[in-house]
Each structure stands twice: as structure tokens, then as C-alpha cells.
């Protein structure tokens, strides 16, 4: 599904080129569960952002479903990630002004899905995450774990092939974190959704079938 060949990204400060990512080669198949680990500043989030097409790169190539991402036009590229990728964030990034229901519904609005269909999809999702009773609450009225559940529900609503999660359990206590990891595992196994997560936590990383270790912008090793 994803192929990275000699991918590099850098910033130039004071005439000196500093590599954020250097010569990354990685192939990820459909249905995989990958964890990316590494210390702060090793380029984990940068890599995730590039995979999510939210950020560009300077060298190399990125193939997503056999499409050359860097040659795609902005419009086509955003279409590609809208259709196939869901994002989950460490800080949940729910929209404060919207209720649980509306937050989950938002991605569908941008895909111009009909009202009746939309209602059915959101209702299914609320059901599945057992949040029907909370659908009219605002994010500030939920616990962190519940917020992250809403975040995941929102990522899943468009039925993506791939979920990119940036430290999804970083703001949660260990019990809530475990629940989220269980959920990811279940999604990966039962729904066949590919998952790539960035994490600091060895225990959480172990949920992945493969663990990519980054150090100073390079792949240090790949476990599994």
C-alpha cells in the first residue's frame, strides 16, 4: 500500500542543511499494524505527517496505492487522503464548538454525503463505540479517554483503509491507553484497517506487528 524510496526531508538554517528525515526506505502492506518509535526529535511525527500527506518532502519518492504522491496536484492529493486516511491525534483535536455527534459527522459533510445516509452512518458509529447517550455532549464534558474514542470514531466514519495515529495514548492514563490499543488491534484484525502509530511507549508499541525505530531522521532498525 505504501512504498517510500530514499525519502529525505530537510530544513536549511544559516546555509546549513539539517536533515529531519534521511534516506527512508519503507514498504507497508495493506492490513499491517506498524508502530514508529524513537526519541524526541528523531522525525517520527514528520514521517507520519508525510505519510498523511499533510507535509511535503524534498527528495525521494512516496507511492500510495501505486500513486506517486509528490507528483499529484494538491486537489488530487487531498482527495486521496480524504478517501483513504483517517487521523487520530494525541490531543484528540475535537472541535470544541461541536457536539460528539457533530464532530463525528463533520468528515461526512466534506464528502457531501446525503443527510439520511449520514445520520445512519453516525448512528452506527455511536452504537459501536457505545456513545449514543453522549452524542449531545460537547468535548469539554467528556473524559480524555472518551474524547479519544470520539476522535477515533471520527477517523473511522469515512471507512478509511489507513489510520495514522500520532501518540494516541499520550494524554491518557494506562488503563485508557490499553483500551485504545485493544480497539486498534480489533480494528486491524476484524476490519482490516491498516494502522500506523507513533508512540514513546514500548508496551503500546508492542501492539504493532512491526516496530520501526527512528534515530536522528534515519531508520535505525525494524523489529518484527
Amino acid at each position: 500500500m505504501i512504498t517510500l524510496n530514499h525519502l529525505s526531508k530537510w530544513v536549511t538554517v544559516g546555509g546549513i542543511r539539517t536533515f529531519l528525515l534521511k534516506d527512508i526506505n519503507l514498504t507497508i502492506g495493506e492490513g499491517e499494524f506498524i508502530s514508529i518509535m524513537g526519541p524526541s526529535g528523531s522525525g517520527k511525527s514528520t514521517l507520519l505527517n508525510i505519510l498523511g500527506m499533510l507535509d511535503g518532502f524534498d527528495e525521494g519518492e512516496y507511492l500510495f496505492l501505486n500513486e506517486q504522491v509528490h507528483t499529484l496536484k494538491e486537489k488530487h492529493r487531498s482527495q486521496l487522503y480524504k478517501d483513504h486516511i483517517g487521523f487520530v491525534f494525541q490531543a484528540y483535536h475535537l472541535i470544541d464548538e461541536l457536539t460528539v455527534y457533530e464532530n463525528i459527522e463533520t468528515p461526512l459533510l466534506y464528502k457531501s454525503i446525503k443527510t439520511s445516509e449520514r445520520q445512519a452512518m453516525v448512528a452506527d458509529m455511536l452504537d459501536r463505540f457505545q456513545m449514543v447517550g453522549k452524542k449531545n455532549l460537547f468535548p469539554s464534558q467528556l473524559s480524555g479517554g472518551q474524547q479519544q474514542l470520539v476522535g477515533i470514531a471520527r477517523a473511522l466514519i469515512t471507512k478509511p483503509k489507513l489510520i495514522l495515529a500520532d501518540e494516541p495514548t499520550g494524554n491518557l492514563n494506562s488503563k485508557q491507553g490499553e483500551e485504545i490499543m485493544e480497539l486498534f488491534t480489533q480494528l486491524n484484525k476484524e476490519d482490516g484497517v491498516s494502522i500506523i502509530q507513533v508512540t514513546h511507549n514500548e508496551k503500546n508499541a508492542a501492539y504493532g506487528k512491526r516496530i520501526v525505530h527512528l534515530l536522528d531522521g534515519r531508520i535505525e532498525k525494524i523489529e518484527g
Binding site: 487531498s78 475535537l94 472541535i95 470544541d96 464548538e97 469515512t158
Partner: peptide
């Protein structure tokens, strides 16, 4: 800003 960013990530086009 956050709302804007989130909406973009969720698939909002600039036009929307």
C-alpha cells in the same frame, strides 16, 4: 486555528 486545522485534516477543502 485548531478548528481550522482539524477541519482541513478531516477533509475540508479551502473553498469549503
Amino acid at each position: 486555528a485548531k478548528e481550522t486545522g482539524v477541519r482541513k485534516v478531516l477533509g475540508a477543502s479551502r473553498w469549503q
